[in-house]
Design a protein around this nucleic acid. Structure first.
Lengths: 336, 336
DNA sequence: TAAATTTATGCAATCGTTCCCGACAACGTT
DNA sequence: AACGTTGTCGGGAACGATTGCATAAATTTA
């Protein structure tokens, strides 16, 4: 029922061949100004729109990029997506977003799906469950441009864009120490995630630099990155059951941070009196929180922008790119 | 560089014609079991994936649906998108999300873009700036299935899925009245939006039923639906500058609700002591807010699910559908 | 055994677009 | 006048997949 105008319709109406019409619209030199004018006028009149599907088939590219994130309902990712779109649309690319919900299986399915839909490239932030990245490796080997952001995989040699997680974590931990806390716990997501490793490392460095011993009991992993509130609750209850209860927690994730606050509120443990909290979060309603949260904010929008620029550079490169870089953007500590 | 396997490659490798290979893969009866086996085995071996672009061109459908929302960084929409995806992926459809950022121009561009990319149907929630919907009317007349959700346009005769905004607004207003407030203001987004009209109507009905006169000075529109914090601030300052200051506000939007709380916090006006607030919001961190917010929660996930089911029904209908319905889902009042 | 039927396969058109190639004017050059 | 250039344009083959039709071989039937 939905029948768009084609180049053939124009050709027939104007008594020309499809090639001539195509040339007129494509604005090649092999065409007289007169015919070009006629064709363009008519095309405008009947509101001709070239069929992008046909173009994709012909040119073997779809002018679209796929984005793989865990959740759009996450301030960091939704801001990053805004950054991605801002660049992509300017450059005429479509953005197809898919969510893994932190599940490895969904990540594999989504990546396959996107690849088979002939996206020209992929922007990927790994799910917290993912340890095996062979689904990405095989695509990358077959030549599909991929840029990682936020949660990156070092096994694949390509561009990466991340926040300075280590420094952010260091600053947050240091802030907790400076405000007089000694027993600082760390709640983070699954341990193989790049962001977890980097943030843990910053946390440990801050402790070390301030002469505080690292207590393994103080480090808790939540494999689903806060998607399951239960997990966060268990981690906190375990921490609070220790004989030497922590007096501060550095939390390494958006959902985990809000999840922690929620748990303490339910347990009626006073924050920051009984326990101080600092955590990564890009929520824009943090100011309304009580207890308030000292947060490390990532430049999500810029990360999205930069990753997209790098991906488009790979996609549109005339020759295979061999040199890849990892860009690190600074975080922002908001003391509250 | 990224060269997927085609049906032609299989044909050549096996010494068959492309038609035979196609038939083997498509599992039609016009094929011998022997050849079918060989083809299927080889296809599996080299991991053949049919090219969806070619299929789209041939079958004139893309097995994808477009979603138009104002922002994914909005709890209501991100939850609705999860609902949309849950149905769409099950039925083998791709979901392409585009954001209007409450801008009419971006809405028009995005809708054109999606339509030209041959989406099989559209799920639309209008931007707050939109008054003219001719861009949707023309597509709808040309046969493109459209289902509206949340912010609907009555000018177009098609399926619609909304929350019971009027009842939700009524309950919220009634709650404010029951808690002893008399001068109840109303902050809402642009006045032509369906949700604004419905929520205003519920607000007015509640006042009327409780013998409270409607004061036009108490009703404030924010044209960008809270996207511009300045706008919210101005509205509130105007309200608080009235000789008869309101003692409660019913807020008709997610972003507006948090925006209001923020303004009062900055103005150091005590909530709910000096002014009580109830508002629409689907945020899942509301429990952490202080001052806390009594909220009307929409069944966002179910709205997304239902809208998608209805859209797919339209898309896959054998005969043009003439009967359309508007489904209304109940809201939830969370007193805090 | 010849004719009729079934079965398995290939050919070619199709979707909408681009682009290589060839055709054929209308020139200018020797 | 014969030949080469240049400028316009149409024909037709791609891109990857499906499918109606033709055709060959294999089978059944008379």
């Amino acid at each position: 029922m939905f029948e768009p105008v084609t180049i053939k319709d124009i050709a027939k109406a104007l008594g020309l061949s499809t090639s001539t019409v195509s040339r007129a619209l494509r604005d090649t030199h092999e065409i007289s100004v007169a015919t070009k004018k006629i064709v363009l006028a008519y095309a405008k009149e009947i509101n001709y729109q070239p069929n992008p599907i046909a173009l994709s088939l012909k040119e073997r590219r779809s002018k679209s990029i796929g984005v793989v994130v865990s959740e759009v309902a996450n301030s960091f990712f939704s801001q990053a997506i805004n950054g991605i779109e801002s660049i992509a649309y300017d450059r005429g690319y479509h953005v197809i977003i898919s969510q893994t919900h932190e599940s490895y299986d969904r990540e594999v399915i989504n990546v396959q799906h996107l690849a088979s839909r002939s996206v020209d490239g992929l922007l990927v932030s790994l799910s917290s469950e993912t340890t095996d990245i062979s689904h990405l490796i095989s695509l990358h080997e077959r030549g599909l441009p991929i840029v990682f952001f936020d949660r990156v995989a070092d096994e694949i040699n390509t561009h990466k864009v991340i926040a300075n997680n280590e420094k952010g974590a260091y600053q947050a931990t240091e802030y907790l120490i400076k405000s007089g806390r000694k027993r600082i716990a760390h709640i983070t997501s699954s341990s193989h995630l790049s962001i977890s490793i980097e943030r843990l490392s910053g946390y440990e460095a801050a402790l070390k630099d301030n002469g505080i011993a690292i207590n393994p009991q103080y480090i808790k992993n939540c494999l689903h990155g806060g998607m399951l509130q239960e997990e966060t609750e268990t981690a906190i209850k375990e921490l609070m059951a220790l004989t030497e209860k922590p007096d501060a927690i550095f939390v390494a994730g958006d959902r985990l941070s809000t999840g922690c606050l929620s748990v303490f509120k339910n347990l009626k443990i006073a924050v920051p009196k009984d326990i101080a909290i600092a955590g990564f979060s890009n929520s824009d309603v943090l100011d309304l929180f009580n207890p308030s949260l000292t947060s490390i904010r990532q430049p999500a929008f810029d990360i999205g922008k930069l990753a997209t620029e790098m991906l488009l550079q790979l996609i549109e490169a005339k020759y295979p790119v061999e040199e890849f870089e990892k860009r690190v953007l600074e975080t922002d500590l908001c003391v509250r």
